[in-house]
């Protein structure tokens, strides 16, 4: 390939860089603007703390923030595990039975219209300051995108592949595992990426409504003592954790759907040849 770009970075790293610089640049501009506004404009850290102040306050309190983050992560994990299990169960049942599908789908959609804001305090009243209301809230916030994407993935399975399998003598169960599950995985990961961004937020919301530990509680307390710098620092930690989870879905996807890499590369090769 003579005359092509003479970079020493691999094409993949180059792609990542190209994708990353616009948001990074934008973020940098925003942070600088914020710093100037806080430092020379508002000049009151209880109204708007500057980024440097947020970072140094957060760094001072890092062990507290981390120890509050652990219970939040635990709730996220349990809630997400619950919604993962439920989504496969429900989407699977919907795939096996049209009756179940007709019965469940409207309820699923309705469950999404229930405002979490209203549910969180109610859960606390019913279940107390325990782990359970947080886990339930995380599950509620995440399980619709998972279930909906999975159900769609199952439904769009190649009918002819299913027929081929039946001509070999396969039953419905084997067909499900051999054709529908692998075919639905790309859909599932799309849903996973949407829902995982809600997961930590859901846990924090639940803690906000009433908890003994956790980042949500910490946020609430810092707000009450006007430590806006620590509020911002906590928010940044939450955002970082969410982004990390989001990125992890890509790794998981690469690992669980290895064949897709070749489908993609076949496409890029075609594009390069043209």
């Amino acid at each position: 390939m003579s005359g092509s770009r003479s970079t020493s970075i691999s094409p993949r790293a180059g792609k990542v860089l190209r994708a990353a610089w616009p948001p990074l640049l934008l973020a940098a501009v925003l942070v600088v603007g914020w710093q100037l506004l806080a430092q020379d404009g508002i000049k009151n850290p209880q109204v708007l703390p500057s980024p440097t102040r947020v970072v140094s306050a957060g760094w001072d309190q890092r062990s507290t923030i981390w120890s509050e983050a652990l219970p939040t992560l635990r709730e996220t994990e349990l809630g997400f595990a619950l919604s993962f299990a439920l989504s496969w169960l429900i989407a699977g049942a919907m795939d096996f039975s049209a009756t179940v599908r007709r019965a469940v789908y409207p309820l699923l959609v309705t469950s999404q219209t229930v405002p979490v804001v209203a549910l969180a305090p109610m859960f606390v009243v019913v279940f107390g300051f325990t782990l359970l209301p947080k886990v339930l809230l995380v599950a509620l916030a995440t399980f619709f995108p998972l279930t909906a994407s999975l159900a769609e993935g199952f439904a769009t399975a190649d009918g002819e592949a299913s027929r081929l399998l039946r001509s070999m003598g396969a039953g419905r169960w084997r067909e499900f595992w051999t054709v529908r599950v692998p075919g639905a995985l790309p859909f599932f990961f799309t849903g996973l990426r949407v829902s995982i961004t809600y997961a930590i937020g859901g846990a924090i919301f639940a803690e906000y409504a009433g908890a003994e530990r956790g980042l949500g509680l910490y946020l609430n307390q810092m707000q009450q003592v006007f430590r806006l710098d620590l509020v911002f620092a906590t928010v940044i930690v939450v955002a970082a954790l969410s982004v990390a989870l989001f990125a992890a879905t890509y790794l998981l996807e690469r690992w669980l759907t290895p064949w897709r890499r070749f489908e993609r590369s076949a496409r890029t090769q075609g594009a390069n040849a043209a």
Binding site: M168, P182, E263
Partner: peptide, 22 residues
Amino acid sequence: PQKDLLFPWRTVEDNAILGLEV
């Protein structure tokens, strides 16, 4: 079938054993 219908998520070998597996 008329379309080759190889399963994209299976290697050639695992496609080949499909009938036996079933």
